[in-house]
């Protein structure tokens, strides 16, 4: 599907993810982080109804619980004692910090889940090939030949099974020996096949001159516009961060969690930056609804 967020140029998408991950690490403020978590969750839901995220949910859940429980036990800085746990004072500051660390990590993991869906291997390879073209070519070649090799192994094993050579019965020593024989034969075969592949490559002029690189993706005006607004809002956010907005002061005196004054501006900008994919996807949905309605 090439609509919404997936229709953007891979470079714009990469910039988006870099900015979000830096933002998640810099903005250590419970409201900023919780807002971000909520939007990232929504983003996941819009992409695939949260299916990929569900696969990770157990791991993320475990991690959050551990961090939230353990941080207050080991961190004893602060001056607002909530209660005592085995004669250890549990501080409010430590609890808040635990929540912030947990949500930062959860946010980064959850945004990575969307990263895997949005930046497909071919898009990543495209970005990669801009920096290291030879390595990208090598990656592509191995993406072709590894599955081929696996299929060959399977075929060889079934042939040898009829011959009575077994890979899942008998002593470990015997199985290992049979396996090694297959490996050896596989290597001989692979070498021979690779000569043919090399012939086919040089028959098409490989290595005669510097290769050019096919640009599968083009920066459209909408990509430039998006890149501009992403950069713009992150400059505003960086400015705010440098002035101390969006970061909760834990010591020497605990700051109030509620936002005040110009902090609201930075909060809204932050939400816009993270929520940008949701905006584009939402626009798409509305567009289609309207389109169908008009028909």
């Amino acid at each position: 599907m090439v609509r919404g967020i997936q229709s953007f140029h891979p470079f714009v998408l990469l910039v988006y993810y870099v900015l979000i991950i830096i933002g998640l690490m810099l903005y250590q403020h419970p409201l900023f982080l919780l807002g971000a978590l909520f939007l990232i969750g929504t983003f996941n839901y819009i992409l695939d109804k949260g299916r990929e995220l569900k696969k990770w949910s157990f791991m993320i859940g475990m991690m959050i619980t551990f961090i939230i429980l353990l941080t207050p036990i080991f961190n004893r800085r602060g001056d607002q004692i909530l209660f005592h746990f085995f004669e250890q004072p549990i501080m409010l500051e430590a609890v808040i910090q635990g929540i912030m660390i947990a949500s930062t990590l959860a946010g980064i993991l959850a945004i990575f889940v969307t990263f895997n869906i949005v930046l497909t291997p071919d898009k990543l390879l495209y970005l990669f090939s801009k920096v290291l073209p030879q390595w990208a070519l090598l990656t592509m070649l191995s993406m072709r030949f590894v599955p081929l090799l696996i299929r060959k192994v399977k075929e060889m094993m079934s042939i040898q099974q009829v011959k009575g050579l077994s890979f899942n019965q008998g002593s470990v020593h015997k199985r290992a020996k049979n396996g090694m024989q297959i490996m050896q034969m596989l290597l001989t075969n692979a070498l021979e096949d690779s000569i043919q592949a090399a012939d086919s490559m040089s028959a098409r002029g490989y290595g005669l001159q510097k290769r050019s690189n096919y640009n599968a993706f083009k920066m459209k005006s909408k990509d430039w516009l998006t890149l501009g607004s992403l950069m713009g809002s992150s400059i505003i956010l960086l400015f705010g961060w440098a002035k101390g907005y969006g970061v909760l002061q834990l010591g020497p005196v605990l700051e109030t969690i509620m936002l005040s004054g110009s902090e609201y501006i930075y909060f809204m900008t932050w939400l816009f930056l993270i929520g940008f994919p949701i905006l584009t996807e939402g626009k798409e949905v509305i567009h289609w609804k309207y389109y169908q309605w008009k028909m």
């Binding site: 070649l141 072709r144 086919s200 490559m201 002029g205 001159q209 510097k210 050019s212 096919y214």
Partner: peptide, 24 residues
């Protein structure tokens, strides 16, 4: 089988063209 070196048909077709240094 052995003379195909790329994972998708598109990349395979591009392979020779890229070798020759054609523009996109």
């Amino acid at each position: 089988e052995n003379q195909i070196v790329m994972d998708t048909v598109m990349n395979e077709l591009l392979f020779g063209l890229e070798n020759m240094g054609y523009s996109t």
